[in-house]
Simulated scan of single mutants.
Amino acid sequence: MTSTPLPPIMFEPLVRTALLEDLGRAGDLTTNAIVPVDASATMMLAARQAGVVAGLDIAALAFRIIDPATVITVARPDGSGVSPGEIIATVRGPARALLTAERTALNFLCHLSGIATTTAQVVEAIHGHKARIVCTRKTTPGLRALEKYAVRAGGGGNHRFGLDDAVLIKDNHIAIAGDIRTAIERARDSVGHMVRIEVEVDTLDQLDIALAAGVDAVLLDNMSLDQLAQAVAMVGGRAMTEASGRVTPETAPAIASTGVDLISIGWLTHSAPILDIGLDCA
């Protein structure tokens, strides 16, 4: 699966900050002491386990910031599946630059590829159902755009990016507003006509109230499979249905079989293990 690249302006500040964090006040003491300033090298980015690649442009930028003479030749672009030992990209250039940027590049690449890999596993688990796997706002502070990009590279979709692009009325909003209808009406009177309104419900009675008040989507939180199936029937296409809570690759197929439109999973971004990728001399 191919993935539309992120504009560099969205990640360059993050890469520069990460490099500065690593270089500190004196630079790469080890590399500068051992490697001649005019030495060049060719290294291979290779997968050490099966997975899906994401973050190559970000890793490449880390090398190029240290030395623009670095050249990266991509063999398996973002969104590609890789097998253990498979070459993802070749990195050529000044040896000092390659060694200095190595850890920063791999930190981004392994983390984002891990998210893409985990997403792809859940997407594959529900293959054949109409439901789509989406992530949430449970992201690493500062890395949201990158982590949500990695979810897309793995074949998933994105829920709202922040508090400012959609209304999601949750239990605490309802508690403070007094009831579901009041919360929905206040939201509708406040936001622009292009903004969608979603409300979280825990019971079918709450769902009935939300539907009567008129919403664009309903988040069916921690419902049983029977409740989810009943909820989908009650909605009858009047709103988008989203299941959330206790979703795993093992439980996802049964959840998808209830007919929900979306399955949202927070751990795709906050708990996905890295994909082990190495950088070694050719």
Rank of each mutant, 00 (worst) to 15 (best):
V232C: 07
P68K: 05
I274R: 15
P141V: 03
T2N: 11
S264L: 02
R64C: 09
K130S: 14
G85E: 10
P84M: 04
L219E: 07
E200L: 02
E86H: 05
T119P: 09
I87Y: 00
P7T: 12
T248V: 02
I87E: 13
T2G: 04
A272C: 08
K138C: 05
A46Y: 13
D38A: 15
R152K: 03
D208K: 13
K130G: 13
D78W: 03
A233M: 10
A256W: 02
R48A: 11
R186T: 13
T251R: 06
P7R: 04
A18D: 15
H193N: 12
T203H: 08
A47F: 00
S244L: 10
Q227K: 12
I65S: 04
D208P: 00
R186P: 02
E12F: 04
L112H: 01
T241A: 05
I65Q: 07
A47C: 06
G81T: 15
L228C: 07
R64H: 07
G24T: 13
G79I: 07
L109P: 07
P13E: 14
A101K: 03
A239D: 08
G245C: 08
A131H: 01
G266Y: 04
D67G: 08
V134F: 00
L98Y: 04
T17D: 15
S3Q: 05
Q121Y: 01
A217V: 07
R160K: 10
L112K: 00
R16S: 14
I184P: 03
A41P: 07
A150Q: 12
G154T: 05
L225S: 10
E242H: 00
I34K: 02
G237S: 10
A177R: 11
D226A: 06
R76D: 02
T251A: 13
G266N: 11
E185G: 01
S244V: 10
A47G: 08
L29Q: 14
E21W: 13
D208T: 15
V35I: 15
A101H: 04
D28L: 09
T203L: 08
S80C: 12
D78F: 06
A229S: 15
D38R: 14
F108Y: 03
L20M: 14
A145E: 12
D208V: 04
T139R: 07
S3I: 07
C110Y: 00
E200K: 01
I184T: 12
V52F: 03
R96F: 00
A150I: 11
S224E: 11
M234I: 05
A131R: 00
A54P: 05
A62F: 03
A75E: 08
R25P: 01
L29N: 12
R25S: 15
I133A: 11
L23F: 15
T139D: 14
I184M: 10
F63M: 10
P253F: 05
M223H: 01
K170V: 08
